[in-house]
Design a protein around this nucleic acid. Structure first.
Length: 190
DNA sequence: CAGCAGATTGACT
DNA sequence: GTCAATCTGCTGC
C-alpha cells in the first residue's frame, strides 16, 4: 500500500530515513511503470544542517520545494548533470528531506536499461544520480506530490532485519564541517 | 558580472 | 587514480 501523509509528517527525519529502507519506490512516466526497493538513504535535517541546501533558512527557486509539506518530491540538478531525488518530510516551512542514494530494481528493468544505455545490472541504480535516470526522474518532477500517481512509495511488507541496517557518515559532504560526521546515512545490503 | 565549488558519474591513464 | 561534463547559487570585485 502507498505510504500516507502521516508517514511523511513525522518530525524525526532520521527515523523516516531508516524506515524508508525496504520500501518500494514507483514511477509512472508516460504510462510506463518502474519500481525499485530502497536500499540506501541519507537524512538532511533542515536549517541546522550545514550539508543541507536549506542550511540557515536559505530559500532559492531551487530549494523552495524543500519548504513544502512532507510527501513532496524534491529533485535538483547536481554538478549540472545528475538529477538527485529527495523525499520532503515534516510540516510545511520545515525543510527536512531524505536523499535516496541507492535502490534495487524490481519492475520495469528493461525500461531502466534503455534509459541507462550502457549500464550493466550491477550499476543500474547504485547511485543517487543513476537511480533517478533509471526511474526516469528529472527536475521536471520537483514539487509534485508523492501521494499521486506519477511518483510514489509503497510499503509492500518487505522486512529488513534491523541488525542488517548499517549506518555511517554521509557521502560527499566533507565541506559541512562537524555535520559531515553525523550518522545520517542508512543502508542495507540485499 | 566573473569565478568557483558542489548531496556525481563514467571514461580514460 | 585523475579528470571533464555543465547548471545553480554564493562570493567578491
Amino acid at each position: 500500500m502507498k505510504l500516507s501523509t502521516d508517514f511523511y509528517l513525522q518530525p524525526d527525519v532520521v527515523k523516516i530515513s531508516k524506515d524508508l529502507l525496504g520500501k518500494v519506490l514507483y514511477t509512472k512516466i508516460n504510462g510506463i511503470v518502474t519500481s525499485a526497493i530502497i536500499t540506501e538513504t541519507e537524512a538532511y535535517a533542515g536549517v541546522t544542517d550545514k550539508a543541507s541546501h536549506a542550511y540557515g533558512g536559505r530559500r532559492t527557486k531551487r530549494t523552495e520545494t524543500m519548504y513544502q509539506i512532507g510527501g513532496t518530491a524534491y529533485v535538483y540538478l547536481c554538478y549540472g548533470i545528475h538529477h538527485l531525488f529527495n523525499v520532503v518530510t515534516n510540516q510545511a516551512n520545515i525543510p527536512h528531506a531524505v536523499l535516496i542514494r541507492a535502490v534495487k530494481p524490481l519492475e520495469g528493468t528493461e525500461t531502466m536499461f534503455l534509459r541507462r544505455k550502457k549500464a550493466d545490472l550491477n550499476r543500474l541504480t547504485t547511485g543517487p544520480g543513476t537511480l533517478s535516470q533509471a526511474l526516469g526522474i528529472g527536475v521536471q518532477h520537483s514539487g509534485i506530490s508523492l501521494l499521486k500517481d506519477k511518483i510514489w512509495i509503497e510499503d509492500q511488507g518487505i522486512q529488513i532485519n534491523p541488525q542488517k541496517i548499517q549506518m555511517g557518515p554521509r557521502i560527499g559532504v566533507d565541506y559541512a564541517a562537524e555535520d559531515a560526521l553525523l550518522p545520517y546515512r542508512f543502508y542495507v545490503h540485499m
